[in-house]
């Protein structure tokens, strides 16, 4: 564990708490993409189910449990509790375009060996899917052209999480000679997808202005 990864994990955890807070206090999931949240449940279940047969540390297991349960809870909030506030007509990104390529890539590029085939394929699938899981949310943002400030804080914390993993990988390369090309390439792509959002967040939201996309 190093400081970058720890801060990244905290940022990830914070983003989820912000989202739950936003939905519960406004009693609405307005501006939130159900499809992105569904993808995160798929990502976390396919990656973290290994907590059943792999023990790394108490921290690791508790975080995995948190991510699986909180993302499922968010799905419940959106799809059942506050379902009337959901507007499917603006959440139109097609999920097969993301899930199918991630599945194909995971069958081709993975770290599977004789001992661990399924778990390694599932792991790489979850990494590929996570790298693009934010697209339905960004697409929704693009369509509405604006966002509540709390939603932008959620997105910033979520983007900061993968951005912080980049110095973590550099640090691990320097100190342990450890390189994980699948995680690194996917992580770089995932972070790059936030570039536009980060730009508007830093130039507008941080200065107290409303998040609005240029017309």
């Amino acid at each position: 564990m190093n400081i970058f990864r720890f801060l990244g994990d905290l940022s990830h955890l914070t983003s989820i708490l912000i989202l739950i807070h936003k939905i519960q206090t406004s009693r609405s999931c307005r501006g939130i993409s159900y499809k992105t949240q569904l993808l995160y449940v798929i990502v976390f279940v396919s990656r973290y189910l290994d907590l059943v047969w792999t023990y790394v540390s108490l921290y690791n297991s508790l975080m995995k449990l948190f991510f699986i349960s909180s993302s499922s809870y968010i799905l419940y909030l959106i799809k059942i509790r506050f379902r009337p506030t959901l507007d499917p007509s603006i959440d139109t990104f097609s999920l097969p375009y993301l899930i199918i390529p991630a599945a194909i890539l995971s069958l081709i590029f993975n770290y599977a060996d004789e001992k661990a085939w399924l778990s390694e394929v599932l792991w790489s699938f979850s990494i590929y899917l996570e790298s693009v899981a934010i697209l339905p949310q960004l697409f929704l943002l693009q369509r509405t052209g604006e966002a509540e400030t709390i939603t932008t804080h959620y997105l910033f914390a979520l983007g900061a999480y993968r951005a912080l993993y980049i110095p973590n990988w550099i640090y691990r390369y320097a100190t342990e000679s450890f390189v994980d090309p699948i995680a690194i390439i996917s992580g770089l792509i995932q972070t790059a997808l936030y570039a536009d959002f980060f730009y508007i967040y830093f130039t507008k939201v941080i200065r107290g202005q409303k998040f609005e996309l240029p017309a």
Partner: peptide, 10 residues
Amino acid sequence: HVHTHAHDEL
């Protein structure tokens, strides 16, 4: 240590 995923990363 190269070419395996980091099991300690989330």
